[in-house]
């Protein structure tokens, strides 16, 4: 039993460089393997969020097209036809947190391209907290994961990996140790292998917060970005890095979050869901460069 317990000393050992084998595997139970790589697209537009705070749908649609085109190196509509087909039932997993929900404009932009790729509207669902009771999500063959980028009280950051917590009936079971077990949810049949695209909405990200329902406009800024990829770990790694960079720019230091976002690293090292090492993530930047931070 004791062999399988991860303690503080395992991390001290890694930090001290006295256990190269542990470092290669990340954590006990991890496997040493060839270094994978991932591609993530960051697309930005200065006018995506108006001075009145409203999100402009045509611009978001164009940004999504840019991102998908750059990600797959092809025409966006052709790329979408590679992501989903007329035979698919597509669940668009959104996020409904009332302070900073997934913008309807982003949901609609995705839905339009899914429809154009040949999926009947009756076979497309958009849901967050009701996914377990939504028959469409029960028979979904493909998922598109879309949610806003923000800090999170329990997980450090609220990003794409975290967005699947509503696919389990007992979300609180995944809150231990900074939500480190979140990656496990991605191995369950209801979602495993179904995610075709992750869209982390960074139009107005929240870079700092405290407590569960904390929301302060001072810590939200009009970044005008979408972070898009097929690898949720890589997308989240870039998102978490952006928030960290913004905190340093804003506070002059990396002011600590309620919890460090360890679940992203664990999703890589333990559940092998993707790449959390930024040196192995190819970031394609597109659009508005001013204030990009990363």
């Amino acid at each position: 039993m004791a062999d399988s317990i991860i303690t503080r000393r395992d991390f001290l050992r890694v930090a001290a460089g006295t256990a190269a084998a542990t470092l290669a595997g990340g954590l006990p139970g991890g496997e040493a393997r060839a270094a994978a790589t991932a591609t993530v697209v960051l697309v930005r537009h200065a006018e995506a969020v108006g001075s009145d705070g409203r999100i402009r749908f045509p611009i978001v649609q164009a940004m999504l097209d840019d991102a998908v085109g750059a990600l797959f190196g092809t025409d966006p509509r052709e790329a979408w036809r590679g992501l989903v087909t007329g035979a698919d039932v597509v669940g668009i997993k959104t996020n409904a947190w009332y302070r900073l929900p997934t913008p309807p404009e982003a949901e609609e932009a995705i839905k339009r391209r899914v429809v154009e790729a040949g999926v009947a509207e009756r076979n497309i669902g958009i849901d967050d907290r009701g996914v377990l009771d939504n028959p469409l999500f029960g028979r979904a063959t493909a998922l598109i994961n879309v949610r806003p980028l923000r800090t999170h009280h329990w997980a450090g950051v609220g990003t794409c990996l975290k967005n699947y917590i509503m696919f389990v009936p007992n979300p609180s079971d995944y809150h231990a140790d900074g939500c480190s077990p979140l990656g496990k949810i991605w191995t369950y049949p209801i979602v495993k292998g179904k995610t075709r695209l992750n869209v982390l909405v960074a139009l107005t990200p929240q870079f700092y917060g405290r407590g569960a329902n904390f929301f302060d406009r001072r810590y939200v800024w009009p970044y005008g970005g979408l972070i898009v990829g097929t690898d949720p770990v890589a997308v989240d790694t870039i998102g978490a890095h952006l928030l960290q960079t913004k905190r340093i720019a804003f506070f002059g230091e990396d002011r600590a979050l309620d919890v460090p976002p360890v679940h992203i690293t664990v999703a890589d090292k333990t559940y092998h869901l993707g790449v959390s090492d930024r040196s192995r993530i190819r970031l394609i930047r597109s659009g508005w460069p001013e204030g990009a931070l990363i």
Partner: peptide, 11 residues
Amino acid sequence: LYRYMDGAAEL
């Protein structure tokens, strides 16, 4: 509480 706290009710 869980829904109100967006999942952070355990605290």
